[in-house]
Design a binder for these strands. Sequence first.
DNA 1: AGAATGTTTGCGCGGCCTGAAAAAATCAGC
DNA 2: GCTGATTTTTTCAGGCCGCGCAAACATTCT
Lengths: 201, 201
Amino acid sequence: MGLRERKKQATRRALQGAAVRLTLERGLEKVTVEEIAAEADVSARTFFNYFATKEDALIGDAPLTPDEADHEVFVAGGPTGDFAEDLVHLLVNSLAGPGDLAAHRAEAVQRKELLDREPQLLPVFLSRLHSAEQGLATAIGQRSGAPEDDFRSEVVAGAAMSVIRHTLKRVPYGDEADIEAVRDLLRRAFVNLGEAYGPTD
Amino acid sequence: MGLRERKKQATRRALQGAAVRLTLERGLEKVTVEEIAAEADVSARTFFNYFATKEDALIGDAPLTPDEADHEVFVAGGPTGDFAEDLVHLLVNSLAGPGDLAAHRAEAVQRKELLDREPQLLPVFLSRLHSAEQGLATAIGQRSGAPEDDFRSEVVAGAAMSVIRHTLKRVPYGDEADIEAVRDLLRRAFVNLGEAYGPTD
DNA sequence: AGAATGTTTGCGCGGCCTGAAAAAATCAGC
DNA sequence: GCTGATTTTTTCAGGCCGCGCAAACATTCT
């Protein structure tokens, strides 16, 4: 990787870091793009070469898409064969980004803190989940052999993203066993869905 | 209702109408607030006395909350006793606003057209659904006797809102029988959820 | 009619975001 | 390491958004 590419990643991280830090310090509307850029030793115009909006710098713009490998395993009906359980697996691996879950825990905590404190970020976050939903729907459709853009796949994927959303709200960050806690919450959520909408019990 | 109140509603409608019309004509980013205000025979400053943002004027700011009566019937376990069916009833009545569904069909068609053509409106719309979700969760919690802010209620409500979202996307507007079509789609969606997440079949 | 209350308007301003072109940094080849 | 090509950063100008404020205006109430 050349110097150019490395520097770009550096300024991107600097901008994102400055944005997060200043926002947590003062609140989003007391921070201007100019200040963020100054903090990252960059002109204000350059900020917009990296992020379209101030909010994007905070939430991040990683596509939130699962690993290619995990995706294919899921589509093929794996890894366990149980739909909900495999969904848990796929979602947990997707949300962490390409690498390890633990490695991104600090960022996840920050994101949660930001979303709690700055309501203006909620729409941005919801849109991001919405984009991810599309991909999940096609994965579910492929796994079940449904035609593309199938209504059922979309609905099932939407419910799954809703589960993710509420689970992330409830995760007890700070613990060390939080990955397993996430799994548990997801499993319970899917069970709840089954009970609520399933055949009359 | 006094003259003052009537005038306010009139300018509100005028602003909203102008915003929708101009946006459908030229696209959202080719329309300025000044133009909308001028079209409604009102100063630009007045626009912001009614709507906080240009987008709000398009999506509307009705709280999207169900009738008090429908809400209580649902909480009490009615009208049919079947959870999914009662949810369909509640949602259909909520989405229409206080009055008749048919009366608001034109607006619904417009909203859909806008959402299709102007992606910037999607976050606004998603936030609106998100707000409505909170109320739905407490209603579901009360009906099932769960404690407040129960995880299960939230997840079930989230899934329901997701169902709404995808159903609205698929509704065949233009037909005359579209209210019944909405009900059908909702019912099918809930059945799909039950099949997907319910006990292994 | 006149006072009280609420609404509209003009004005100014800070901030967001964009386009275009000059300036600086990096890269590829020699 | 020099040179020219490519990419990134910066500067500059500018439109639009959204808000606070105080003056003008409209309505309600007595």
